[in-house]
Structure formats: structure tokens, C-alpha cells
Nucleic acid binder design. Structure first.
Length: 556
RNA sequence: UGGGAGAUCGUCUAACGGUAGGACUACGGACUCUGGAUCCGUAAGUGGAGGUUCGAAUCCUCCUCUCCCAGCCA
């Protein structure tokens, strides 16, 4: 790879390889199984996987499961599925919880070296004596216990002889260190909880700072990549590694996590959205979770491309949601089968077309891909068009149907509007037209031009479909900038999900297969939702097509 | 007022002392049996002040602003 196309971490790896500091790069993605993966995690996955891939190294999926209070098997399974779905196959699947024995040995090593001690202070006392950002902390009265006493007490902790919160094992570093993380950080706490994997073997569990570097050391990780907020944990990461006999010395590097506009990456908020029913679940198509994006119709390749094109840096950033949309649009434009579906139906009766006639017209499956072939679509006297494609009193530059205007029904005929039929309340219920038999297929011998081309479905053959129109989840671009006193609930977009039950689709879509994506002509890209049943398809809108008419209108 | 980090078009990101480039967005136009797609074009940026240098986004000094850290979470 050439230098100019490398991001800053790739340059570091490249240097380390060239200088001989390392022989092979080893990375890892270390999720805690306490929730579902979102697109921000996907950035970490693809980055780490990518480093190993481009430099011929190894990549592990490692569960950082050191807290029995939060972790669950279900999350672990979903993470495995999601990482695999993303296409980031790992060399080894590891669990930090498998290393508990080794962590314990290294804790003993630190105690024997006089670098760790058992502190009997309460959580409250520990908090109070930690000091503040500008004031140093105070040494614990238990800080100078003998090695023998610490060994005995730590063993008592491990044996379950101590109560939760009665004591902890702390590293003996410096209570007046300007970096708060170095003020005698806690290494082990007592948690009399069953762990989803280790079960009841342990009642003491290691803290992240103590454990993480050792996990990396055990696996031979060379470049331990994490997000920015761990920058000032790095001295501690290094301290733990430098004070015991580890088999390998990894190094930590930090990058800015991904933020996407109009959504959140906070596990807390995501969990609350699900729990409060604002969304239907972790896989609600509005969620930034991988399962949500997947159900929305995003593909692994589009997500990977989005991630790779947004790049890597160390400065806070928030990527426009429109960028994600442009990537999936681009991919779908090339691949998606086209179909005609009317979202808000308006009946058209073609007065001079025989009532008993049905013609099958040929339609391209994908104009971007001739190899995709074509299909036959039924046409008859009564068809439905999009309600917004007719206006009784149209503005200038409205190319669609209106009294006296002629438009093309895509792949079928030219029709001209003759009459508008309204109900008692004045609502348009039907538009009566005449067609030009000479225009079959969409052109006429006289070569006259029609500006408007509409999608349609034959009334007699249409399949009723449920369509779910999704929009941005939140109305605020940067959800880290919520107003004082407001919560995420105040910013939920009321139009984030609009369900249409009366949409009409062309016959082909009756048995659309699960997960398939289509372009509904002039509307957008839609995928088949798992809620679909035989003959009753449900589609989720992934993204709209660019709509320049909407733009003209909004300016008027 | 402690420590750590970061500031380049509206957004994301290149430029590694030598023409500030690309993508998204926006705005024009061409073309079109999707007002889609495609193509062409336009607008838009180095946080500020000094300094070094023939030449600075890049090196130095000072300033400003933003983010992170006081869990027995990760």
C-alpha cells in the first residue's frame, strides 16, 4: 500500500514492520457482551480486521467479559453473528474470562513486589480520598500493609471470605498523580455474582485497566487500538505491563470513534429506546445497530465502504447521515431489481381502453445492468398512480398529470387527463383519461415528447403491500449537543417511521423473498421485512431516491 | 486554576517545507421512457497573532476554542 493512502495507524504499523520492531501485526476487537453492536463498533471491527488483513497479520475477536453484572450470553451471540455478517472473519475467538487464572497470578506478582495492596476502605472513602482534578488524593491507611498480609487478604477475597464492597485490591502507584487514573487504581473488586461463562468459579473480578493490557499480552496483540477516551489510561496500561513478567509487550493507540448525525451511539440511550418502546427492538430499522441497519436494507459492503471512506483521525467528528445514504444508494442503483409500487394510490380509468382487455408490457429489471433482463407487467383499463402525480391545479414546471395534460405510464401508454371525479366532500376519488393506442411501449410514431413518466399498477392485478417509510430517528443533527434540561426523547423525529397499509405493488412482489432489495421506481430502495407473510409483503424503505422535484417545490 | 488530546470547505478527509486535493452536501447546466441514474460546471477551508524560511496547513513561540478524565463500568 502506498503511503498517501494510509491512515495514521497504518503508518505506525507500516513503520513497525519496516523497522523490525514487530514481525507480524496482531489486532483484536474487544467488545463487552453487554449490548448489541452499532455502526460505531463496526468501525472498530473493520479497522482492526483491516489492519491485520492489509499487513498480513492476525485478528482476534475477543470478548472483554470481566463484569458479571452486565454481560449476557445473548449479547455474545449477537456480536458473533454481527461481526461475521460484516464480513470480518477472525483468526481466533477469545474470552478475557478464560484468562482469569493468569490475571490472578499477575496480581500476586504485583503484591509480592509491593506494588499492590488490599484496601479496606469503603467505596465512599475511596471516592473521597481520590482527590479532585486539581487536588491530590490521600493515601489509604491500608496502603502500607505487608506483602504477607496483602497475600493473605487477597486470598481471603478470592475465597469468598469477604463481603462485596468491604475491600478491593489496588495498585500502589501515586495518590497525588496529576492523572487521576494513576491514583492507586482498583485492580479487583468483589462481586458475588455468577458470570455467564466462568459461572461461580470467581467472586473477585478484574477491572478493565488491570486486565486489558494483559489480555493483549496473552494474545500477542501488537497494536491495541481503542477510542480517544482511553488516552489517559495509556500510562496505566503501560504500568501494568511493565511491572509483571508478561510474555509480550503490546502498545495502545487511540482513534476518534464514529458519530453519525441524527442518531446516537450511546448504549444507554439505545437501550432506553428499546425498553420504552419508542423503537420496536434492537433491530428496529431506525436503530444504528448493525441489526437495525441490516433490517433497514443496508448491506455489509455498503457499511464497510462507508466506514472506509469516512476515514480515521483523532479529532471529534460527526458524519452526515446523507453520506451513509449516498453509499447505499450507489450500491443499490447498480444492483437492485426495479419494481413499480404505488404508495398512495389514486385510481385512473382509461375510458377508451376495453374493460376486458389485459396486455402484458415489457419492463426492464435494471437499466444499469442489461444482464438483469426484463419482465412482463399487466396493464388494463383501471390503473393506480401515485396521488401526488396528479394535480388539478398544477404549479409551473409540474410535468405530471393534470387536466388536459398528457403523460407516459412507464412501459405502457401515453394517457391524457379528461375529467376529475370527486366525492361529496370535494376529495378527488378518480381521474378519467384516454390513452393513445399508438403509444404502446412508451413512444409514438409522431415522436412527440411527454415530459412526465409515471409509475403505476394495474388495479386488477395489484398486490396490497405494507410499506414502512423510515426517516431520521432524531431531529437534532448532533445528539451530543442536546439543550440543557432536554432529553433524547425531546428530539425523537415524529416521522421517523410512517406505515402505509394500502400501498399497491406489481404482481411480482407478492412473493418477494426475505431480505431482498428493490428499487421502487421514482421512490427509493426498499427491502423485504421479516414481518412479510405469503402474499402479504412488508417493505422497509432503506433510502429515498434523490428527488429534484421535491427540491424545486421546497424552494417555491 | 491539574492532567491528557484535538482544531483544514457546511460535513468527512488528503496534502509528510514546494500549485490546499477528493468525497458528501449545496447551487447551475446537459441528457433521460425513473424529475432516478449519468455527465459537465460553480461555490465553499488551513482557529488567531507573531517568528524561522526563497517558500509554512506543515517547523518555533504565544493566544483562543473544543473534547476527555474525580465508577468497586468498559
Amino acid at each position: 500500500m502506498d503511503l498517501s493512502s494510509m491512515n495514521f495507524i497504518e503508518k505506525i504499523i507500516d513503520d513497525d514492520l519496516k523497522s523490525g520492531r514487530i514481525q507480524q501485526v496482531v489486532t483484536r476487537f474487544p467488545p463487552e457482551p453487554n449490548g448489541y453492536l452499532h455502526i460505531g463498533h463496526a468501525k472498530a471491527v473493520t479497522l482492526n480486521h483491516g489492519f491485520a488483513k492489509t499487513f498480513g497479520g492476525r485478528f482476534n475477536l475477543r470478548f472483554d467479559d470481566t463484569n458479571p453484572e452486565k454481560e449476557e450470553e445473548e449479547f455474545m451471540r449477537s456480536i458473533i453473528e454481527d461481526v461475521r455478517w460484516l464480513g470480518c472473519e477472525w483468526d481466533e475467538l477469545r474470552y478475557a474470562s478464560d484468562y482469569f487464572d493468569q490475571f490472578y497470578e499477575w496480581a500476586l506478582e504485583l503484591i509480592r513486589a509491593g506494588k499492590a495492596y488490599v484496601d479496606d476502605q469503603s467505596p465512599e472513602e475511596i471516592r473521597l480520598t481520590r482527590g479532585t482534578l486539581t487536588e491530590p488524593g490521600k493515601d489509604s491507611p491500608f496502603r502500607n500493609r505487608t506483602v504477607e498480609e496483602n497475600l493473605r487478604l487477597f486470598e481471603a477475597m478470592r475465597a469468598g471470605e469477604k463481603e462485596e464492597e468491604s475491600c478491593v485490591l489496588r495498585a500502589k502507584i501515586d495518590m497525588s498523580h496529576p492523572n487521576m487514573n494513576m491514583r492507586d487504581p482498583i485492580m479487583y473488586r468483589i462481586l458475588k455474582k455468577s458470570h455467564y461463562r466462568a459461572k461461580d468459579k470467581w467472586c473477585i473480578y478484574p477491572m478493565y485497566d488491570f486486565a486489558h493490557g494483559y489480555e493483549d499480552a496473552i494474545e500477542g496483540v501488537t497494536h491495541s487500538v481503542c477510542s480517544l477516551e482511553f488516552e489517559d489510561h495509556r500510562p496505566l496500561y503501560d504500568w501494568f505491563l511493565d511491572n509483571v513478567s508478561v510474555p509480550h509487550r503490546p502498545h495502545q493507540y487511540e482513534f476518534a470513534r464514529l458519530n453519525l448525525s441524527h442518531t446516537v451511539m450511546s448504549k444507554r440511550i439505545l437501550r432506553e429506546l428499546v425498553r420504552s418502546g419508542i423503537v420496536s427492538g434492537w433491530d428496529d430499522p431506525r436503530m444504528p445497530t448493525l441489526q437495525g441497519l441490516r433490517r433497514r436494507g443496508f448491506t455489509p459492503s455498503a457499511i464497510r465502504r462507508f466506514l472506509s471512506e469516512t476515514g480515521l483521525a483523532k479529532s471529534y467528528s460527526i458524519v452526515d447521515y446523507e453520506f451513509l445514504e449516498s453509499v447505499i444508494r450507489d450500491e443499490m442503483n447498480a444492483k437492485a431489481q426495479r419494481a413499480m409500487v404505488v404508495l398512495y394510490p389514486l385510481k385512473i380509468v382509461i375510458e377508451n381502453y376495453p374493460a376486458d382487455r389485459v396486455e402484458w408490457v415489457e419492463a426492464e429489471n435494471n437499466p444499469e445492468d442489461p444482464a438483469a433482463g426484463s419482465r412482463q407487467i399487466p396493464f388494463s383499463r383501471e390503473v393506480y398512480i401515485e396521488a401526488e402525480d396528479f394535480m388539478e391545479d398544477p404549479p409551473k414546471k409540474y410535468f405530471r398529470l393534470s387536466p388536459g395534460a398528457e403523460v407516459r405510464l412507464k412501459y405502457a401508454y401515453y394517457v391524457t387527463c379528461r375529467e376529475v371525479v370527486k366525492d361529496a366532500s370535494g376529495k378527488i376519488v378518480e381521474v378519467r383519461c384516454v390513452y393513445d393506442p399508438e403509444s404502446k411501449g412508451g413512444g409514438t410514431p409522431d415522436g412527440r415528447r411527454v415530459k412526465g413518466t409515471l409509475h403505476w399498477v394495474s388495479a386488477a392485478h395489484a398486490v396490497k403491500a405494507e410499506i414502512r417509510l423510515y426517516n431520521k430517528l432524531f431531529t437534532l443533527r448532533d445528539m451530543n449537543m442536546m439543550e440543557e434540561g432536554k432529553s433524547y426523547r425531546d428530539y425523537v423525529n415524529p416521522e421517523s417511521c410512517v406505515v402505509l397499509k394500502e400501498a399497491l405493488a406489481e404482481p411480482m412482489l407478492a412473493d418477494a423473498s426475505q431480505g431482498a432489495s428493490y428499487q421502487f421506481l421514482r421512490q427509493g430502495y426498499f427491502c423485504v421485512d421479516p414481518d412479510s407473510r405469503d402474499g402479504k409483503p412488508v417493505f422497509n424503505r432503506t433510502v429515498t431516491l434523490k428527488d429534484s422535484w421535491a427540491k424545486i417545490q421546497s424552494k417555491a
